[in-house]
Design a protein around this nucleic acid. Sequence first.
DNA 1: CGGCGCGTGTATATACACGCGCCGGTGCCATATT
Length: 481
Amino acid sequence: MTNQEKIKELLGSHFGYTSFREGQEEAILAALSGEDTLVMLPTGTGKSICYQLTGYCLKGIVLIVSPLLSLMQDQVEQLKMFGEKRVAAINSLMDIKEKEWVLNHLNQYKFIFLSPEMLQQPLLLERFKQLEIGLMAIDEAHCISQWGMDFRLDYLELGTIRKTLNYPLTMALTATATETVRQEILDSLLLDKDKTKQIVYSVDRPNIAFSVVACRRNKEKKLLEKIEQLKKPGIIYFSSKKKADEVTAWLKVETPFAVESYHSDIEGDDKIKIQQQFIQNDIDIICATSAFGMGINKENIRFVIHYHLPASMEAYLQEVGRCGRDGRPSIAILLYEPGDQFLQMRLHEDGLPTPAMLNYAYRNGTVFDGSCSTIQQEIIENYLSSKTPLEEAKAQIMSRELQKKRQLDYMVQYAETTSCKRTHILYYFDETRIEKPLNCCSNCGLDESVYSADQDEFLRNKATTFLNWKKTLNELFLLEN
DNA sequence: CGGCGCGTGTATATACACGCGCCGGTGCCATATT
């Protein structure tokens, strides 16, 4: 039996599917032929099948590096649902006994999920070294580039980890990466460009229309208009937790919809609850920061609105890519007002060490901890302990700052361009628009009624809004008395 | 950025003008504390 026949059969027997989606088969076959792979498939097209099926065909354990605990748990659950028992996530949610047991019985497992931070533990690495590793998968590999330099530094250690594990067969997976970012991923993982098979598909999602709404001190009004009009469910993204909370409270009063906010301050249990309610259609609208969404598999999200300007086109496409997974018409709206970039610039400000901080640290061999943020300290300590020359450290930081600035500039250009928004997005990913969907973008002309709740529903909403208002007023009145 | 809230100061005892500062995202893990 050829590999091709074999994986087709396993697709049915393990996952119950009859055919592959675009790119999956190609990725698996490349990996099975012994090539390291970088797999870039559009958001929501089943990247996990790629490493899972590859794993089933190979001898040895599959290590999956995953960025989030919730993502690991989802994947573990999913595999168990398909009947796989030899699967575990090693993380801080595990109690010590449980962890010990898994580590002592690793050869009974097929799939192990872990974070890059967990992989830094010497004991753990020692165990994995003694194991036959069939495949090492890096899920959401864009995190290397997005987070490695100034948020989760352990993402940059994955190359060293690969080396320690004697360069196991590797598959890196992502939905959004430019040519430059793909190269960054390869370099960071110590993957040879010429020996790594890149399976790259278009980032374009033709069923998503792009719209930019120019605002002038009236974002809230414009937002309300859109919320009342659009088909639900949907996500509104903010770059501020406070603003997300405010708008949530406000929309609860102003509209009849079920609205919840989601960001890093929400307690763990509530986070899970909100996610589940959203997935079960009990919540119409989520007001979220960038904390929300990775690994959200919900088919029927109809819109993604950005109240603030995202930091980069990669981030924007990741967030926008969460709508329309069912292939039905969906819309991505950016509310833009000139000057919006300053919030992002402010967010970046304390992220990287300044030259003065570096000078001090290199002169004294220790971090000046008076005015450094935690992450700045961490970055400096990293440079000191790796004995990176001062000038090189400075150069790296400068180039990261420049990169962030360019990314933001491109978002401003996107917001302001009077030509096709879709073309502009694709250009960033070195693609040209091949076909123009009927509803392309706000500059090509959009039939907004496609995304509107039907007239009946609209009127019903209006009526309920009114009733809600009366109810709220009554309650307030009663409180007053 | 630029708007807003706050405290201070000024011409006159309440109101208004002015300047200043503020505004802020993403998660692992380990360890200490309820």
